[in-house]
Design a binder for these strands. Sequence first.
DNA 1: TCGACGGTTGGTACTCAGTATCGTAACTAT
DNA 2: ATAGTTACGATACTGAGTACCAACCGTCGA
Lengths: 226, 226
Amino acid sequence: MPTTARDRLVAAAFELFEGQGYDATTVEEIASRAGTGRSTFFRHFRGKEDVVLPDHEALLGRVADRLATAGAGGREVALREAAGIVLAHYLAEGATARARYRLASTVPAIRDREIASVQRYVRLFSQHIHTWLDAEPDGPLRAELVASSVVIAHNHVLRRWLRGETDAPEALLDQSLAVALPLLRGPAAPAPTIVITDGSADVEQVVAQVRDALGKNGARAGLGPA
Amino acid sequence: MPTTARDRLVAAAFELFEGQGYDATTVEEIASRAGTGRSTFFRHFRGKEDVVLPDHEALLGRVADRLATAGAGGREVALREAAGIVLAHYLAEGATARARYRLASTVPAIRDREIASVQRYVRLFSQHIHTWLDAEPDGPLRAELVASSVVIAHNHVLRRWLRGETDAPEALLDQSLAVALPLLRGPAAPAPTIVITDGSADVEQVVAQVRDALGKNGARAGLGPA
DNA sequence: TCGACGGTTGGTACTCAGTATCGTAACTAT
DNA sequence: ATAGTTACGATACTGAGTACCAACCGTCGA
């Protein structure tokens, strides 16, 4: 089993960071424990923080691929599956993901770095959703809200899994996205509007009231979301 | 008017960053141009990035105060006003805010730092909203969605103002929050549900269909959001 | 007027992350 | 076998950030 230098560096970094703290650990120590030179460390990782972070490039690429193949009908499915790809990646990491979570919880430098990484996913989602919604009312704003909501739903589930609060993260992601996604479908309805009349009411009056209640926003008529 | 060393350092930093780039500017240059020593720079700012960033501590404090005084009835008002406080701060900064925006757009280090700062506002909002919603269905998730949505709405407006795309940012913030906030009021309604019957329909059948359409989520009956 | 004192400053020295460069060993293809 | 490629180690350098110390400047009380 020829462990690569890269793998040994990652392992050494996790051990030292957890053992003696992030700030108290120098890159030279990590390299030394991995049995390699300091140069090699910086050849594999851009900086001290990146050692313990996932390979976001590859993951972002896969997410981008999934989002790019979203026809007009399957946009919501694309978002759900894209979020699922990311979640599956972390689930597969298992103990590594949990160790990183512990580090990010205590080391500000790593936490900030991770926040910046999360923002890259938001940007990626946002770019695609913008092309879907920009022409609609409040489209640009809604695009940003939806993009961030997808990522928040994902992180909500991931965090609960990292803390051992759920055994079925995939199902929980589905439920969470159901809460987060309605803004994608149309301008938000502050509350469901139900009109019930028995025929004795003046039709025009009801229509006027409905129009007032709905304001300028268009709305779908019919019996619910089908 | 005796400009303080701190003010001179900030001015010098903006000038040098915009003139010759962030990376090409050393702290020693900034200090030198401000007519002060390098030590003094680090006495006033934690690092090279912080020179051009706003004083978030004070602003976070004011936002926290506003959120803390939110009765059960005025929660939405509290969120709107809290967002308004932040927006007003940036508007008052004027040219400085625009210069920072240019820098954050081009310098990754500053951009990441600012993202981390934004997250502090999200956290602050989130903490308060959690105490409001945690007991409701999907409360914890909705709290995080709402917190982030408020900040996104704010940033959406701020960015448009920074780019000179709006003359009435305060009004735009109101509109944007109207789009972003419905999730605060209750579990999301995927789409407005409208039932119209002329009395000839079987009432029980309609009721059954309504119940199906609404699923498990409760919903308010009545004529719109009044 | 004098001296003690707290706060701000400038200077020096140090650690360490990150960059650049060079020589070398191992592997590959022709 | 040779030329090209890739990964590695070593060295030297820049610059951010920290620690420490000495000088200066105001104020207050004696």
